[in-house]
Design a protein around this nucleic acid. Structure first.
Lengths: 144, 144
DNA sequence: TTGGGTGCAAACTATTTGCATTCGA
DNA sequence: TCGAATGCAAATAGTTTGCACCCAA
């Protein structure tokens, strides 16, 4: 029980502030979810968040987890990563970067923004505006 | 609705040859599906393929469409494009290229391989081998 | 003939939604 | 107080699977 508080990378107050700053009403379950995500940069599926947040006792319902993650993504607090047809990952690292996706383990790893960049931005289809660039390098367990 | 009038862009024989060349037994429904895909480079969801192939008369079952698309992808005849959390797109353009994804219309557009490239390939996580690089530029309808 | 391929429907999984209840400001 | 947020369960949607039947080689 004690280890829950000692590794706290972010205080409850800081989380609440951050939510408010993004125009998100800091309710109990939102703060609970945000604390998990903001503890450190990581990639979690809705299912994983649900499991972690309710690890000790049921705190948040499944629907609320989905609603909250969707809201956070909309507010820019987390980033949705679409690489696995089976599920969406939520990335708490909101700074510009890209990903490796290990297709064997279903694991995501960050690629620092400085490490990969496009050599040029192509002309966008007329009438459209760029919203983001996602670069995913799919890898699999090395063979030998 | 799209016209299904096959303008002989690919003959049935050519399709069969191509399937054989990839080690795929050319059954009736596989050829049917392949003809749609190989007619021209395009991005279709399993659902769309199902609708097109059965436009005139029920020819292929849903399960077979999914199984077949999965098989084609595995054999390198088509490429899976994961950009929409709701569904997988199958791209019959197997040459190296990337995509624009219009999040408003749910539409994919090709970006020629020459137009965008990575300035550098980052070091892969140890023990892994690169399988592919997917670059997706998300766009939305321009606002004005 | 005969094992791979197919059809059908049921099963699954991730995600969404309707609605009554509860909570935050 | 009062509208927003939540919980629960049922509803969706895409995809997969089990199994009997059928067809390509």
């Amino acid at each position: 029980m004690e280890k829950v508080t000692e590794t706290q990378a972010v205080t409850r107050e800081a989380v609440i502030e951050r939510l408010k700053a993004s125009g998100v009403t800091p309710t109990q379950q939102r703060v609970e979810i945000a604390q998990i995500l903001f503890a450190r940069p990581q990639h979690l599926s809705a299912d994983q968040v649900l499991a972690i947040v309710n690890a000790e006792a049921p705190v948040v319902s499944k629907a609320t987890v989905y609603n909250t993650l969707g809201l956070f993504a909309e507010k820019g607090l987390v980033r949705e990563v679409i690489v696995d047809p089976a599920k969406v990952f939520y990335d708490s690292n909101t700074s510009s970067h890209h990903h490796f996706f290990n297709v064997d383990t279903g694991t995501l790893m960050d690629i620092d923004a400085g490490q990969v960049e496009l050599n040029a931005m192509p002309d966008l289809p007329s009438g459209t505006v760029a919203e983001g660039v996602d670069i995913v390098i799919r890898v699999r367990e090395g063979e030998r």
